[in-house]
Amino acid sequence: MRHKFEYLEHTADVMFRAYGSTQEEMLSHAASALFKTMVDPETIAARESWTVEIEAPDLESLAYQWLSEIVFLFETESAVFSTFIVRLTQVGAMPDETIKLHAEIGGERIDLNRHAFGTEVKAVTRHKFGIKKNDLWCIQVVLDV
């Protein structure tokens, strides 16, 4: 894989594409791309872990909720994250039935002396939001900063 994720030019906000050979990998890399906007991952040690469970009617809604959850966790846990392990399970046999996400997030509590902060992500937008499968799975996201 050439990149796990890349940032694209956007005047007011932050836009990125994240890739993966599986949906899980793509969602994990998208979380890394989101979080790198806020804090330099090199300054974060994964000392603690957080578990996230999400259910959604489709992959797009699931991805949106997953990325929004990371913003929520950052603010409410006062923690910074560097590892994201994502597992998906399909509930039911039909392609459009509920998808379940289980994730283990590694990180630590905010330490302003050590963590190099960048731009605050206010929210994940749905502008130009989309998921595609070519050779790889690819998600495109615009963050409101």
């Binding site: 956007h10 005047t11 007011a12 906000d13 937008t125 749905r126 502008h127 130009k128 615009v142 409101d144």
Partner: peptide, 9 residues
Amino acid sequence: AHLGYGFPI
């Protein structure tokens, strides 16, 4: 006005 999401800013 500049590029936003949804509406322009």
